[in-house]
Amino acid sequence: MKRNVSIKSMKYEDFNDNEYIEQMLKELRDNGTNVIVGCLDDVIEWGRSNSLWPLTFATSCCGIEFMAIGAARYDFARFGFEVARSSPRQADFIMVAGTITNKMAPVLKRLYDQMADPKYVIATGGCAISGGPFKKSYHVVNGVDKIIPVDVYIPGCPPRPEAMLYGLMQLQRKVKAQRFLGGINKGISEKEYEKMMRKDTSRTEDYRDYDESGLA
């Protein structure tokens, strides 16, 4: 079975400037799947792509435009994105809106780690993509893709809300082009994960002894 990826009321030609999603689509078309798995996958991806909840996260200017797309004129609720969660556990994607500094970088990484799979990252604005106007600064990370994997880049300083919506639709397209069954949900075992995380947080772990009763 061949899966089709389309976004409602958007022509395909308006979208094909994104090479790596094109690549994903091609792979998807070339390797057909079992009908049942394919149909199920289609439904799941349809659901996932239309219900991407953002994490309320913003560091600077782009954050205001992020609020603007939530507000009345641009209204990303139309796409089902409006349930902005403040807890990273419940969010589906993190929109890195603004500059990430050296001090913020570990925090951002941690936020990303705290999110539940499947999770996505959108780098919004020049600062998040490459450091933007602050590229030469001593305290600015030159692109969040150095810290966490980025799915969609939205250029601009800050990007217009229309550009953000376009970027969000690209993310929807990417989600639709994925295979949930046997694909992205093939995670690592809990033990491996635990090991990985422990390596990462060992420093803070030593820092304070936890009380197993539940209160640290």
């Binding site: 439904v43 799941i44 219900s51």
Partner: peptide
Amino acid sequence: RLGPTRVGPWGSLQVFCDVFK
């Protein structure tokens, strides 16, 4: 605002998307 509009008529299938998600 308008609320969900893109899945199903008037966005009525929005909640099903959320459930799958």
